[in-house]
Design a protein around this nucleic acid. Structure first.
Lengths: 149, 149
DNA sequence: GTTAATATTTGAATATTCTCCAAATGGATA
DNA sequence: TATCCATTTGGAGAATATTCAAATATTAAC
């Protein structure tokens, strides 16, 4: 008997959920077909990208969260997107933004613990093109993905 | 006829979605009752907090995204959580973390445009207890909430 | 303003999916 | 091996999503 929950968590992190049309219909007091029509519209015009679960990350072994400010070396200024796309591939990285100011890229990262974070920094963030990083370690999370926790 | 889509967006931002058990069952090739049992377990132990939609925020009038590093005045160091909880109440604020280092609180904020952001800073971030803020404006978002965009 | 074209709302019927239950299986312990 | 508890599974019923066609509302054209 093998535990399928890690697999479920992986899938639900970005997908495999769907809107509750009947519940929305009750909440807004419109016929569910109207809700259905309007949601399909949002999906068709790609205003809604996906439906997913939000986790208590401590309980799924991703309790260590930090923001990483990344500074690029001058030769990368022209195309920060290349490095940013590379970073976005990693499942531990929740968000990737290309920003203005002293730091060209801002990451939000979730790992099991500080060791796993250190490992990620070595594997992923110590590379040509990245000249400097600054880590802001989250000690307590009050809200994430618009959800109060 | 009044547009219900803003209301749908608000509700789907934090809730009103549900897992697709049948689709997960196909993907993992287990009976859907097994999937159901395991997901209920994750929900019961509150590893899963909610199911929600992820949006193309530009398309729902929240195209301006920035990270705000907040520095507290010394008298607030003892209890940053009070201010943080206050900040978390605002619907424009996607995440709130209490962090180590030079900046005690890190926010991720989404507004319609720079004007709306400026307005939020004035209304919410110009207050006793907050001594300084630094804004990192996102020019391009590559990944958010684990979803590549 | 009136008409025509298009978009949205809605109810009814069907298709699909979820959920409950009870039985079977698996794993752990003594 | 026997016992206990957790997990898996199939079947049945309940709930929900989806399709379709008709009605209504909105917009555009004249």
């Amino acid at each position: 008997m093998k535990d399928i929950r890690p697999k479920l968590i992986t899938l639900l992190k970005t997908d495999y959920a769907t809107p509750q049309i009947a519940r929305l219909a009750k909440r807004i007091t419109s016929p569910s077909t109207t809700i259905h029509y309007n949601i399909k519209r949002l999906e068709d015009e790609k205003a809604i990208l996906t439906y997913k679960a939000v986790f208590d990350y401590k309980k799924i072994g991703e309790g260590f969260c930090s923001y990483v400010l990344v500074s690029l070396s001058p030769e990368e200024y022209a195309d920060p997107e290349k490095i940013a796309r590379d970073l976005a591939k990693h499942s531990e990285i929740e968000s990737v933004d290309i920003c203005t100011g002293d730091w060209e890229i801002v990451l939000k990262v979730r790992t099991k613990d500080q060791d796993a974070y250190y490992d990620l920094v070595r594997r992923v963030l110590s590379r040509r093109g990245i000249s400097k990083t600054k880590t802001l370690m989250s000690m307590k999370q009050l809200k994430t993905e618009f959800v109060n926790v």
